[in-house]
Simulated assay, not measured.
Amino acid sequence: MRVGIVSPYSFDVPGGVQLHVRDLAEWLLGHGHEVNVLAPADEDTPLPGYVTGAGRAVPVPYNGSVARLLFGPLTGARVARWVEHGRFDLVHVHEPVSPSLSMLAMWAVEGPLVATFHTSGTRSRALLASRPALQPGLEKISGRIAVSDEARRFVREHIGGDAVVIPNGVYADRFAAAAPRPEWQGNPEAPTLGFLGRIEEPRKGLPVLLDAIPALLQRFPRLRVLVAGPGDPQVALAGRSPAVREACVFLGRVSDEDKARLLRSVDAYVAPNTGGESFGIILVEAMSACAPVVASDLHAFRAVLDDGWAGALFVNEDSRDLAAVLTDLLLAPADRADLARRGAERARRFDWDKVAGEIVNVYETVLEASPLRAGVPVDARPTRWWRGGN
């Protein structure tokens, strides 16, 4: 099968959708399929051989975050050429209603089209305003995938139609096999907690974790909080006490290898996110690495953690509750080990061998139902919504 995959978000900055696209492409390639990924990327960005860079993206506030998107007539022409020259059996776009490459590809494709919806946001004014232009493209989609029940609800309530739920995937064995780093490991008197995310993005919840540290230090004076991700530590720590500043170790951006090693090293992984999450891939990564997970009780996180069976939950944005849950867990090594075991068991549901197999089943169903497969003539020349040349 020859598959074209479109990422709306730039490969210059790591994110959940980009990692999903990358891992799916590599799984398909490893199982004998031909794959090309189209994604925004600066010219000097090192890209895998299967990725075609579509040009420099622009930071845009989107879905409670800042996404690097790429749009416009010139980009539309570039996307149409990619579709036309790719001669794909099927094109798979991610986040088709985001104002970026996926929307342009959705308009350009005339053959079998699959879309994955990652967002769980509410209907926005921009979505309402763009609905007339989006509708013809949305009607082309033959297979709809949502990464969670929350994302499926978004599709049903704000897009129309339905979607099959197939979660994000993780190479669970890679995290399970990672070697801990001694300097990141703790002990009963000096435990370590992990946090990964953009540290200046409010919905990632780092301030909630920082607010919990003073209470934790009363019981664990040598506690360390290992913070990995982009952002300015001085901004994050502004106004914090010297004790909180001393407890925090900022690692900056970490490689995939070091992310796995960090998750294998800490006594607990903390996900204090405050909203805007449709899944929670970092929870699955932490569980795969056998890290006990403590997460805010968002609907999406509850679903990943099986309503608290595979990870501990605390009241969203309640730092006192977070401190109490962490204290209880750190004082009970047997409970912590049991939670880690259940988390690792739960993570197997999200392994790429299972998840990608379900995605391929959608591909095959769409291809079997395609007019092209049924011998019905279809004009293969992409439709253009702009004026201009080739």
Rank of each mutant, 00 (worst) to 15 (best):
S124K: 06
R125L: 14
P136A: 01
L127I: 03
F88W: 10
V114E: 02
G137D: 07
R87A: 12
L128T: 14
K140F: 00
S100P: 10
L138S: 06
E139D: 15
W82G: 10
A129K: 13
T116W: 00
S124D: 04
E139F: 02
S102W: 11
A115I: 06
E139Y: 08
L113W: 05
G86I: 02
V109F: 00
H94S: 12
S120N: 14
P132I: 02
H92P: 14
T119D: 10
V114L: 11
A115C: 10
P96C: 00
P96E: 01
A129M: 12
W107K: 09
L101W: 00
M103F: 09
P132H: 05
G111F: 00
G121Q: 11
L90Y: 08
H85Y: 11
D89I: 06
L138K: 08
P96L: 00
P136G: 05
P132K: 07
V114F: 09
T119A: 12
P96Y: 01
L128A: 15
L134A: 10
F117C: 14
A133L: 15
R81N: 10
M103R: 15
G137K: 04
L128I: 14
P112L: 02
G86W: 06
W107S: 05
G121F: 05
P132M: 02
R131I: 00
A105Y: 00
V83C: 11
